[in-house]
Simulated scan of single mutants.
Amino acid sequence: MDVLISVFVGLHIIGIAALLGGFLSQMKAMGAGTARFVPGMLHGALTMLVTGVALVGFREMDGGGLNHIKIGVKLAVLFVVLALVYVKRDEERIEKGLFGAVGGLTIANIFIALLWH
């Protein structure tokens, strides 16, 4: 079970990297007002959702303790990010505030995972 959990943690990190990498690659375009949600951002958010839900299930099956409030907050933040990226994925230009919100919420989700014990 430990190997399976480690594989899914790795996949979860890859999803975070895709979402955050897509955001960071558009920072210059955001300054110019031409930023858009690239497909990798949507795929990264979906990867985070699927692997995160799987990790919760694996931890529950393994008998490990979970902070369900923390998981709920992370899931809510991810749903907001996923909804924004999904709805606006075909638009040529995304407003700076909306684009920045996706990046900020992604970074917030990372720090929630790391700092909330």
Rank of each mutant, 00 (worst) to 15 (best):
A108L: 12
I69N: 05
V73H: 06
Y86N: 09
P39D: 02
I71M: 15
A101W: 01
G72Y: 14
R36F: 08
A17R: 06
A45C: 08
G97V: 15
L66D: 06
L42S: 00
M41D: 00
V77P: 10
L114V: 15
L49Q: 07
A17S: 08
M61S: 10
A83V: 03
A54G: 03
E95V: 12
N109F: 00
V38S: 05
T51E: 10
L4T: 10
D90I: 09
T47L: 11
R36Y: 08
D90M: 11
I14F: 05
R36P: 04
A32D: 04
V56N: 01
A45Q: 03
T47A: 09
M27N: 01
H117L: 13
K96D: 12
H43I: 06
G63S: 14
K74D: 06
A17I: 06
G64I: 13
E92V: 14
I107T: 15
A101T: 14
E92T: 15
I107N: 10
M41K: 04
V73L: 14
L55N: 01
E95T: 13
L115D: 06
G72D: 15
V50M: 13
E60T: 12
L82T: 04
V81P: 02
V50P: 03
Y86P: 01
V38W: 02
A54T: 04
R59S: 10
G33V: 03
G103A: 11
G22C: 00
F79D: 11
V81D: 01
A17W: 07
F111Q: 15
L84T: 12
I94N: 06
A17H: 07
N67S: 13
V85I: 09
P39C: 05
L49V: 13
T47S: 09
K96R: 15
E91D: 11
V56K: 03
L75I: 14
G31F: 03
G52K: 02
E95M: 15
L84F: 02
K70Y: 11
V53E: 05
I112K: 08
E60D: 12
S6G: 05
E92W: 12
I94Y: 06
V102E: 09
K70V: 11
L82S: 03
G100M: 09
P39W: 01
I94C: 11
G21P: 01
L55F: 05
F99D: 12
D2H: 02
D62C: 13
K74W: 07
I112N: 08
L98V: 15
G10D: 11
G97E: 11
T47M: 07
G72K: 13
W116F: 04
A101L: 13
F37C: 03
F58N: 05
V87C: 03
L75W: 07
G44N: 01
L20N: 02
V38C: 01
G57T: 04
T34N: 05
A45D: 07
G64H: 14
S6M: 05
E60S: 12
K96M: 14
R93E: 12
G97R: 14
A45E: 06
S25R: 06
L105R: 11
A76N: 12
A113E: 11
L4F: 08
E95L: 14
R59V: 09
R36G: 07
L84Y: 09
M27I: 04
G31T: 05
